[in-house]
Design a protein around this nucleic acid. Sequence first.
DNA 1: TATTGTTATACTCTATAACTATA
DNA 2: TATAGTTATAGAGTATAACAATA
Lengths: 147, 147
Amino acid sequence: MNVAFLLSQLGVHAAAQFAERIAELDLTPPQTGLIRLVASEPGLSQQAVAARLGMPASRLVALVDGLDERGVVERRRNPQDRRLHALHLTKAGEELLGRIAVVGRAHEQALTEGLDAADHATLQRLLTVLAEKQGLTPGVHPGYRRI
Amino acid sequence: MNVAFLLSQLGVHAAAQFAERIAELDLTPPQTGLIRLVASEPGLSQQAVAARLGMPASRLVALVDGLDERGVVERRRNPQDRRLHALHLTKAGEELLGRIAVVGRAHEQALTEGLDAADHATLQRLLTVLAEKQGLTPGVHPGYRRI
DNA sequence: TATTGTTATACTCTATAACTATA
DNA sequence: TATAGTTATAGAGTATAACAATA
């Protein structure tokens, strides 16, 4: 089979497996992407977050609502411009992020268990080259656009 | 970035790019999967095809309807058991399959253009190992289940 | 009664666009 | 008037389950 099909097959499989794993934390992949983004760049407006995740702002609202009600994320109004809602993780959000990382490591391990260390490193290098060539933004999953 | 995330990112990207390309043939990825399967194993019943593609038979009906109306696929009733509809490609279907192959080669080329021949071969080998370990069926895309 | 294919229904998810509040 | 966030609406796509034909 060619590389393109293998990549697509494995990638969609990996995404589905990850979705199953984080479902145990009661999270969906877009929610996880939001949490990770807010963790790495706290204080972004909802418009900015929506743009980075590649989704309409209207869709982000429901995403933030759910995590806000669960006490994972919070909206902080900007006093200088009260239209803006800066997004931040709460303490519980930081803790959840830690659990997401644990799940992520287990996922990585399960997916690559057939490879020795050298092959693992080679694969990582080659995939990184492809991702750069394809113009993919590190850490931003194209599937957040529609899942 | 870890291998799992890179794979997922690249895989979903590759699937989206492929979907765009075959849209020029007025096809969706599930339709393409159906055409390929019928080409490689002509005469399967709709139930058998649905099982292999991992979708409910009720969903396959609409898929076959569309390709049937376009003269790409045809249902042949089995005289021994008139409940069964064996699926076959028409002449036009064979021709379309050829155009799909052309698109597939262009897609492969565009996706791997950053790699030299040795790296390309290495990547193909490593991905094949992973796909086998993960129990993925050659030629069957897990995304056909829901796109 | 069981199985194949089909149709109907009800549900989920989403983007678009209207709306509000602030500037 | 323009922008951030929100809500409403309408559409696409789907699985589930009921149904008809055949065994």
